[in-house]
Design a binder for these strands. Structure first.
Lengths: 262, 262
DNA sequence: CTTGCAGGTTCCAAATAATGAAACCAAGTT
DNA sequence: AACTTGGTTTCATTATTTGGAACCTGCAAG
């Protein structure tokens, strides 16, 4: 199992450093990056220089720290609008959140992790990057498992390799075997449950968004608290959620293949 | 005047291609990129391969097109949360939009262009389409001019070089000289006006967000329609807007320099 | 069918850019 | 004054990038 970085040349290694800096989640100093980067001092230094000059990183003169730069925000705007399911799923999400009155998530797979691309909070209005772009684990979330369940074997193996299997709660699945068993079940019944596997008191139900050819495109979920919603009530949402997912899939299909191939 | 691309090596050139693809605003084919990239076929091909493999671009097998990839969304989340003013300005923006009942923008400079990092819509059922990350021209918008006005001369010259000076409306400033004169005025009175310079019927008033040392951090603006708001009414907003900007500046200062330097 | 061609992909020797050990510098610390 | 920590620069060696050209596709017109 090796990620993206090693295969491509200088560009890959440089972008790996970008990921690293972004991963800290706060501005970092050179010396903090050095040990985890696994690169010679001079090389790391040069990479940071380039990234900074390219505005992919911002260097704070006063504090001597690096943080992800604004160019990324501009680029992400394009990415979100063009490559994510968000624009297509927008209406369905609005409607689902409205009728159920619950928090709804739209997610896609990113390199074995869950990438949330859109969200509807029960009430509050939404802000773009505060929620889109967030990442989470795949093995212990509803959307994550829903997507993993429909991955072809080779990609699934790669994804499983990348899971930490950290036991967030007593219910968390902590082994590849347990996860695979669960995925089979999910595949069979058509939806996934997160039964307080990520956070105690939080449960959710998720459905995969599949292309016509069966490729997994993303997933949506409805989140509830165990305090307010019984398990039966949660299971009752299976219908609405899977139907919403199917509608998004249909929209995606229509958009991407406007004409029929004979 | 040369951009970022030329100076740095392979990484810079590759990222320039990324910008190019993102710039199309829609999925593009190899052949569409080739002529505008100014690179040999083989080189461009390799760059696209690398970017795709790195998930910075997504390649659509069926349509044979490239589009910005999801990795950017993940990275942008970090960038937005750490490097933009948005998290700091949030409360002030909420309050300003609330009390004035008008559309409010928060912007930063990105390579000579205006990058909107946050927005509050007047009332509407939230035009939720990712406002953050949008870019606009600097020479004919309130926020743009407010920021240009406080740029040091060398960076200003570079920024002016990058303006198109396209006459969007009869009021648009169309020459560096006219712009520089306006900037002097803005610097002096402390706020900027966009008097239908970008779009007919739309006017706005903007104030710069300056660090303690006078460095420009960003700008905020309140947008109005000439139909609903008279010029006098617009000018009356100067106070609230500049005060809001000052509050954001203070927050930024407090955040970045928690301790006092003697 | 065969010729031409536009859109992509692969090769490979030459040119160039990346590499990283080591030296160096600047501010503290002891 | 000697040492340490954190950051920056140098430079000969090495590996990577480069891009012209050849080469594959279809596919469409002759």
């Amino acid at each position: 199992m090796q990620g993206r970085e090693a295969s491509d040349g200088t560009v890959g290694r440089t972008l790996a450093v970008l990921d690293l800096v972004a991963g800290f989640g706060r501005p970092v100093r050179f010396a903090e990056i050095l040990p985890v980067a696994g690169l010679p001092k001079a090389t790391l230094y040069r990479f940071l220089q380039v990234l900074t000059h390219q505005d992919m990183l911002a260097f704070d003169e006063d504090r001597q720290t690096y943080a992800p730069g604004m160019r990324l925000v501009r680029l992400a705007h394009s990415a979100w609008a063009q490559s994510s399911l968000a624009p297509l799923a927008r209406e369905v999400l609005d409607e689902l959140a409205e009728t159920l009155g619950q928090t709804v998530h739209l997610a896609q797979l990113d390199n074995g992790a869950v990438l949330y691309v859109d969200k509807r909070n029960a009430r509050q209005p939404v802000e773009m990057f505060s929620q889109s772009g967030k990442v989470g684990p795949a093995y212990c979330t509803g959307v994550g498992k829903a997507m993993l369940a429909h991955l072809p074997e080779d990609r699934l193996a790669a994804a499983i390799d990348r899971q930490s299997f950290h036991a967030h709660t007593p219910n968390t699945l902590t082994s590849p075997a347990a996860l695979r068993a669960e995925l089979a079940l999910i595949r069979q019944r058509g939806y996934a449950l997160d039964d307080e596997e990520h956070e105690t008191g939080i449960a959710c139900i998720a459905a995969p968004i599949l292309s016509g050819s069966g490729r997994i495109l993303g997933a949506i979920s409805v989140t509830t608290t165990t305090a307010a919603t019984s398990r039966d009530q949660l299971l009752a949402l299976a219908g609405p959620v899977t139907r919403a997912a199917a509608r998004i899939a249909a929209t995606a299909e229509a958009w991407r293949f406007p004409e029929i191939k004979s």
